[in-house]
Amino acid sequence: MNEPMPIPAQVTLPWWWALLLPLVLIAAAWAVTAFDAVVTARTTGRRGGFAVPAREVARLLVGQRRRTVAADPVLWRAGSAVLPVAAVLAAVVIPLGARPVADLGIGVVWFNAVEVLAWAAVWMAGWGPNSVLSLVGGYRFVAQGLAYELPHMFAIITAALGAQSLRVTDIVAAQHDLWFVLLMPVAFVVFLISTAAMAFWGPFDAPVAADLAGGAAAELSGADRLLFSGGRWMLLTTAAAMAVPLFLGGGAGPLLPEWAWVVVKTAAVLAVMVWARRRVPRIRMDRWTEISWMVLVPLTLAQALVVSIVVLAQGGL
């Protein structure tokens, strides 16, 4: 029903949006950081917190960089830099309003492929400094990837299956009548969980946890640390924003323009993430792997089966 079509000129944003995209993402990640800091301040009975991202950036900009004994500098520095790059590259397929920066025919695969770079990035940052604690942190993230990635991919592919297209704008268009969050709630929930795991966020922050003195980030300071932690916030923002075109109908909504709905829905998803981090204690991967493979994978597969039957029924069979 949705044959691959030649791309109309209006499908993508004007080319200069490609230059703007990193800045948009930085601004969004900045806002999330500030929001999280405000919530943290509230829970400790203080006010404010809005200035926290600015102060952190300033602190890391004046901070000295470090070099550990017999480190592997290439892997180490690359690990920090890859995180923000991956976050921005994954964001090119997300419609900012009606149109994305690049409307790739295999947009969903692109998103998936680029965000997996986080896997390599965290491990490299953990391995690089020749430090036991960060090495353990890096390996924790590899184990985490093995647990979250399959349910994540099945959740994404279920959305693609519902639209019978790998193009993100087609997936949005296919939700014209019914948002996929209603058609495939399991896939949506699994997507949110695995998003947190991919951004090593909230209960899935074991790779950078304080019990390893910062884990994979333990030896990072100055600009390297800014790239790593900034990249992590950007990755979280990108992945949360991807939930909007995949499950929440993209820019669809009354009154407001499409871009505003994208912002509102992304903010709602991120608010859930910020809330969940405080709600749930840290997830250990030696427990989660079992849950992920024995519960989430079958659930997402069942969800995919239901959706494919719906697709067949809509196809007139």
């Binding site: 993508t12 080319w15 995209l21 090119v92 920066v101 690049a102 025919g105």
Partner: peptide, 12 residues
């Protein structure tokens, strides 16, 4: 269609 991706990569 990958041109914007390359531009974005350059920008970042």
């Amino acid at each position: 269609e990958y041109l914007p991706v390359l531009v974005t990569l350059g920008a970042v």
